[in-house]
């Protein structure tokens, strides 16, 4: 039966669904920071970066994700920060 339904469905089967859900859940489980700590860190990052760049604090996004190593030998958890710089601003301020 399984093969017939898979054949017609042509989409993900339930073991793939399980695997993908687990990967997402485990990645956030493994993140060393609690949401409160992440928020604090985000504010600190904004403070530091703002000294040097005009950044769009609204569009700023930081998260811990699993990232493929450059030599494809495996994956590691990495802090990913997406920090948009405001358009038209002089990027490097003179201090």
């Amino acid at each position: 039966m399984g093969f017939i339904s898979n054949f017609f469905k042509g989409s993900e089967n339930s073991s793939d669904v399980a695997k993908n859900r687990l990967k997402v859940a485990i990645t956030s489980d493994r993140a060393v920071c609690s949401p409160e700590l992440m928020e604090q860190m985000k504010n600190d990052i904004i403070e530091v970066i703002s000294k040097y760049l005009d950044i769009d604090t609204e569009g700023l996004d930081i998260k811990v994700t699993k990232t493929e190593l450059e030599d494809s030998s495996g994956t590691i958890n990495a802090l990913l920060a997406n920090i948009p710089i405001k358009e038209g601003s002089r990027n490097f301020r003179k201090r």
Partner: peptide, 13 residues
């Protein structure tokens, strides 16, 4: 049938 993760899947995760 694709309705249970294999041991390879679990090891990968």
């Amino acid at each position: 049938e694709g309705n249970m993760m294999s041991s390879d899947d679990v090891v990968e995760i």
